[in-house]
Design a protein around this nucleic acid. Structure first.
Length: 790
DNA sequence: TATTGCCTCGTTTTT
DNA sequence: CGAGGCAATA
């Protein structure tokens, strides 16, 4: 029983009833459905403080997991404020850094050294490219990026290579599985883990070593999770292993109940999230984790937070009305006592330039009324849309910041220096080696690198060990001289590492000894100045790390890892400096809807609300409309006071401008939430005639006679009808015979989209049927046609 | 081995 | 339209 004194009770002040219920929940699984702006961080922080103050657990017995470093830092900070004392000992960290921390200690059990390197997705793709090349895969069809996505999905769903192989259906899948196998072996050989491995290997660890699992389960008496709707199956399993009895989900063959000799799980799992804001399905996040929580944990308590403290009611009505169109969603109704406020505005503009000008004019108008620019945001589905707005803002001499793009630690020059550090620490890391061996250029080309790597691999040693005998690797005189010079630099740098130089000094040494800085200084490429600045920034960052590290108190992690290990881990798991959340004065913020999650602004402009742009055409093709709608929901609920949605009748995304159709999401907004001018923008002045509804259904294969160009022909003209089998005549009708795959014509636009077998793609009333050969290669398009209204 | 020009292709991205 | 990848060149 918790002891509630006045000191603890103070934590409940100012909380509404459901918030209080969540904070004081006495144990067992707890799901908090926290609508947008309903105070979920408050609930999380107050609950941590409550558990401690009521004497239920010590600070060090709580694990709070988030997805971002920023969220973790904020959580820690706010708990510290509530408790009025240091939060040392409290584990608040991201899924990935919690796992990294655990794995550092336990790495040897899994065949890694504790100095293992963490590969970011760029490193991972480089390694994967080597694997694909070595397996003779066609890297045009099997790009490292696409194959990595597939492998990542396997890993996030906890599929081993063998399990992936079992499910592999076609040629494509089998190639992916081969790559997966080779890639995984390569990772181990490099003593490296990718991001997905951090989760997956921790799960492995807990499953294979029950005593390790039990140690961590005993260490954390309460586990709290933020943004639960974005968890993937691996993360779900991780939580289960930490909190529950022997887990049964995902592996129904396991027996229920604790393993022999194991204590039962404490079941103190609190998850907070909003299914309506699940927007990371493409990264294998599984919304079912939050939708099915009560099924997974029948004794779960569910608390719903629906009072919104952010937006006015019109904005919430728009959001509520929109999300109701999702079937696979928990019913929810956000409300506020902040009043009705301004209605939401929908505007149609002739083209993208006009759209930008309208938005900028509105920004100026609001600014003229005294609204700060820092409280305004322009949101869009894809980064490409920022351009026109940027131009218009620049023309109006308004300040703006664009969030997104290349992150600091992802910049090539920064990654080069980090790769030097990583390789000096872990010479088995061939990705780092290949990256730096000719940077700056020192006459060691791809062939030489290949020979060095092959030679090292034959001898079963690291590249470092073959540098001193380049002749043995079969190199010629010129290459031997180049490699020799590189080897000397490496020896000098290694000595500095062994001597325990500070990281800032190591960075400095790398820039000097390798001639990296000299090369940039000598260059007349204007961009190189910026690169030098970035490197100075990296140096300053390292210096700061050195100082913090020197003054920090020792803990278990420090005892087992050297500063350089920790530095590299931090840079690998840290994204950009958390600029995302701050709203600099006099600066409008531009960003994608994904980046906007968790933020709020007085005024929000959501641009590019056109079918094909938002919802994105690829999402439409893939049948991911519900996730797109959630993305729209996220966008709408960012606004506190003013919300405007715009679309352009014509937009040139790539190439010449194309006619656009207003986003279906606009039509789903309840008119009561909109202003009086909006309906006009929805019906569209020029396109006043409402589009007839067609029921294309699944046509399946079509075929028949015909001939000539297919563009603009009807199904009948092509001799095609629903359900007919495709014959050779049909192929001719489709505009391409045999294996030649013609371009797909959508409206007036040619695209090379990916479609599934027998897919029917409708754009307006144009229908395209696509067929695939056994390799998944698009073989022919049966027709571009006009369907009759039903 | 480095450079040039041609061709292709086009979401979102917490770690 | 424009960035990045690749093949043909110097």
């Amino acid at each position: 029983m918790p002891s509630v004194d006045a000191y603890a009770a103070e934590l409940l002040e100012g909380l509404n009833e459901p918030q209080r219920e969540a904070v004081t929940h006495e144990g067992g699984p707890l799901l908090v459905i926290a609508g947008a702006g309903s105070g979920k961080t408050r609930v999380l922080t107050h609950r941590v403080a409550w558990l401690v103050r009521t004497g239920q657990v010590g600070l060090g017995e709580i694990l709070a997991v988030t997805f971002t470093n920023k969220a973790a830092a904020e959580l820690r900070h706010r708990v510290g404020d509530l408790l009025g004392r240091s939060t040392r000992g409290l584990w608040v960290s991201t899924f990935h850094s919690s796992c990294a921390r655990i794995l550092r200690v336990e790495a040897e059990r899994l065949g890694y050294s504790r100095q293992f390197t963490i590969y970011d997705s760029d490193d991972a793709k480089r390694l994967l490219k080597r694997v694909l090349d070595s397996q003779g895969a066609d890297t045009k069809r099997f790009t490292p990026g696409s194959v990595h996505n597939r492998i990542s999905d396997h890993k996030n769903r906890l599929r081993s290579v063998e399990q992936a192989a079992e499910q592999a259906a076609g040629f494509y899948d089998r190639t992916v599985v081969d790559a997966y196998r080779g890639y995984q072996q390569a990772l181990v050989a490099n003593n490296a883990m990718d991001f997905d491995d951090l989760m997956g290997r921790t799960v492995d660890l807990f499953e294979r070593f029950p005593e390790v699992r039990e140690r961590y389960r005993n260490a954390f008496k309460h586990v709290l999770v933020d943004e639960y709707q974005d968890t993937n199956p691996a993360q779900y399993r991780f939580l289960q292993l930490l909190c529950m009895d022997d887990p049964m989900h995902l592996d129904p063959d396991d027996e229920f109940g604790p393993l022999a000799g194991e204590e039962p799980g404490h079941r103190n799992l609190m998850v907070v999230g909003d299914d309506a804001q699940s927007i990371y399905g493409f990264r294998s996040a599984d919304i079912r984790n939050i939708l099915d929580f009560e099924d997974d944990f029948p004794d779960a308590k569910v608390v719903r937070l629906e009072q919104n403290y952010r937006s006015t009611q019109h904005i919430l009505d728009a959001a509520n009305g929109l999300i109701e169109h999702n079937a696979n969603q928990r019913k929810k109704h956000l409300w506020t006592d902040l009043g009705a406020g301004d209605p939401v505005r929908v505007r149609a503009l002739p083209d993208d330039h006009a759209e930008s000008r309208w938005v900028v004019a509105e920004i100026e108008r609001l600014a003229g009324e005294g609204a700060p620019l820092g409280e305004m945001a322009v949101l869009y589905r894809t980064n490409a849309l920022s351009r026109a707005i940027e131009t218009a803002l620049t023309g109006a001499e308004l300040g703006y910041q664009v969030i997104g793009g290349v992150r600091f630690f992802d910049r090539a020059e920064v990654k080069d220096v980090l790769a030097y550090l990583a390789w000096l620490l872990n010479p088995a890391n061939t990705v780092a080696f290949a990256r730096i061996v000719n940077r700056p250029k020192r006459g060691i080309g791809d062939t030489t690198v290949g020979r060095l790597l092959a030679h090292a691999s034959t001898l079963g040693v690291t590249p470092l060990q073959v540098l001193d005998d380049p002749a043995a690797a079969g190199l010629k005189t010129a290459a031997i001289r180049s490699v020799g010079a590189f080897a000397e630099q490496v020896h000098e740098l290694r000595e500095a590492v062994l001597a325990g130089s500070t990281i800032a000094d190591l960075v400095e040494a790398i820039l000097r000894v390798t001639g990296y800085r000299a090369e940039l200084e000598a260059s007349n490429d204007p961009q190189d100045e910026g690169r030098l600045e970035n490197l100075e920034q990296l140096h300053a960052y390292a210096d700061e790390f050195d100082h913090e590290d020197a003054s920090a108190e020792p803990d278990d992690e420090r005892a087992s890892l050297r500063p350089l290990d920790r530095f590299l881990q931090q840079t690998a798991l840290l994204s950009d400096a958390d600029q995302k959340g701050d709203h600099p004065d006099g600066t409008v913020t531009l960003m994608t809807l994904h980046n906007a999650k968790g933020l709020e602004f007085d005024s929000v402009f959501l641009i590019g609300c056109e079918d094909g742009v938002f919802p994105h055409s690829r999402a439409i093709d893939a049948g991911e409309l519900e996730e797109e709608r959630r993305l729209a929901y996220v966008g709408l609920t960012r606004a506190r006071r003013h919300l405007s949605l715009t679309w352009a009748r014509r937009r040139g995304l790539y190439g010449p401008p194309q006619s656009q159709v207003p986003s279906r999401f606009l039509r789903e907004l309840p008119v009561e939430a909109l202003d009086e001018s909006s309906p006009e923008a929805l019906s569209g002045g020029v396109q006043a005639v409402p589009r007839p509804r067609y029921d294309a259904g699944r046509i399946g294969r079509v075929g028949g006679g015909g001939g000539g160009s297919t563009s603009g022909r009807t199904l009948a003209e092509l001799g095609l009808r629903r359900g007919s089998e495709l014959g050779s005549a049909g192929r001719a009708a489709a505009g391409g015979a045999g294996d030649e795959a013609p371009d797909v014509v959508v409206g007036q636009r040619v695209r090379h989209g990916k479609f599934g077998e027998g897919d029917v793609v409708t754009v307006d009333d144009n229908v395209i049927v696509v067929d695939f050969d056994e390799h998944g290669e698009r073989r022919l398009i049966a027709g571009f046609a006009r369907l009759e209204p039903v």
